[in-house]
Amino acid sequence: MKVAVIGCGGMGRTHASDYAKMPGAELAAVVDFMEEAAKSAAEAYGTQAYTDFDQMLDEVDPDVVDICLPTYLHKEYVIRAANRGKHVICEKPIAPTKEDAQEMIDVCRKQGVRLFVAHVVRFFPNYLDISRKVESGAIGKVGVVNAKRRGGHPGRTRPWYNDRAKTGSVIMDLMIHDIDFLRGMLGEVSSVYAMSRLTEHMEYTLVTLRFEQGAIANIEGFWGYPGSFTTAIEVAGSEGIIRFDSETTSTVKIRKIAETEGAAPVVVSADRSPTLHDPYYYELEHFLSCIRTGEEARVTAEDGLKAIEICLAAVESAETGQPVTFGSDSKAGRE
């Protein structure tokens, strides 16, 4: 199966590197409007570089187009690929608005191509283990969830993240991971409440979801965290607790004495949790397998739409200071 990756930023390179080593997949091309980025990725992962999307489609004729562009460009390129009859994998969030997302879904359906939204947390082995344990009943009925996701501010290296109209904030770009994961595990959300603090260098948001089945989940999203990337989740149920914290699950710790000029040596440290494949590998492998077999994906384009619907409600709640309610009794009032 021939795959072309569009966008050679961090995520595009990760996807390209996974396709390059995936049996049954051929990384047929990488595309970036910045020639250097395209060439560097093509060289690293052994494929051809393009700067023109249509030229690539004409010359390479891939089966699948994998869109790793900034969010505000997703709709245009998903639709262009679909109209050329290509299956599409699209990075999360699917789009900045519900209307755009719906249009993308509709066009792909009309063109008879598959559309997948890359909500990768559903493929992280630690999160997958949690959802499987919960589904098996190991902790009974879920009551309260606390989740967090913290990292550096992406706007420091990629300026489009600083434009809130293009990203829709830490909620839309980072917390969407936990929002989608929890919705996958616990079902539909009945209400959303959010609070946010924004400074020049950080964005800190707390979102609380109430699920139709009753459970309460508080999610912390943090851009500008002055530490290494951290995720944690605790799910408390009527029969027990399951939890994960990336700060306590390193399997490799390295401590080095760095080059030193003064008397006191400087120690450089790295804690790692290496795996055979990264979670993106399993995600992309699953999507390609769904194309081959026609089976429903573990996370669908509709899930991608639902995820942004919840994120947008959280953005609204953070602005109004009041919860936003979903569901049949309130829908009429909101839409």
Binding site: K141, A215, S238
Partner: peptide, 9 residues
């Protein structure tokens, strides 16, 4: 603002 429930007992 608060959410509450009786889930565990």
């Amino acid at each position: 603002y608060a959410e509450a429930g009786t889930f565990f007992h």
